[in-house]
Design a protein around this nucleic acid. Structure first.
Lengths: 107, 107
DNA sequence: CCGCATCCTTACCGATACTG
DNA sequence: CAGTATCGGTAAGGATGCGG
């Protein structure tokens, strides 16, 4: 039980390493609703640069949260989707979102 | 309902602005257990610098999550405590911690 | 359509020294 | 004990241009 306590920071930080970047919550949110092609995502995440979108997608992929599928076509098509594992993040994002709302309403 | 969606990113980010700094989860965790004097906290958060501890405490105070009470004594004593409002953060941190654990165990 | 490479700015954080 | 002030490093993120 005290072991648990010692790791408290690590565990929260482990989660934040996965979702705690500027655009990751939004990306995950959209992918949770349905798979997206790159361009499609780019349009749904306003103001994100191409560089950051790619970078965040790569990291999410590396963490097992997002999958990337290349479809043979001309020009090339790439589809990103949330993985089954990635869906376990949804309640976490929901908790954060709910609290954010509470915080805003409180002023 | 679509309004809700539009604000999704903002709301998660609002929460992350409050807890998403290097040492804040640990600080909040300790304060949730009991009020601490400055020195006491400093000892319980290993490796944190005085500057960062103060800075984070000030921000948490500004967000209404932590209270600061100066007690007349020589030398001066200052006690930090979680506010009632701040306690609403606990489930959020718990969700993050749980997922962090899941993520580590998955490897 | 999808992605990589560079360069640059900025925010975050650490180190250190000093104060009532 | 509980701060403040300053300086500097590092890493995240943005701008822009090129390429398959």
């Amino acid at each position: 039980m005290e072991r648990e306590r010692d790791h408290y920071r690590c565990l929260v930080d482990v989660a934040l390493e996965v979702i705690g970047a500027k655009w990751k919550p939004l990306i995950i949110h959209h992918l949770c609703r349905k798979p997206h092609r790159f361009r499609e995502l780019e349009r749904k995440v306003p103001f994100i640069t191409r560089k950051m979108l790619i970078q965040h997608l790569r990291e999410l992929e590396r963490h097992g949260v997002v999958s990337r599928e290349i479809r043979p076509a001309r020009p090339v098509q790439v589809e990103y989707a949330i993985t089954e594992y990635g869906q376990t993040l949804y309640p976490v994002l929901q908790a954060l979102s709910d609290w954010g709302k509470l915080h805003l309403e409180k002023g």
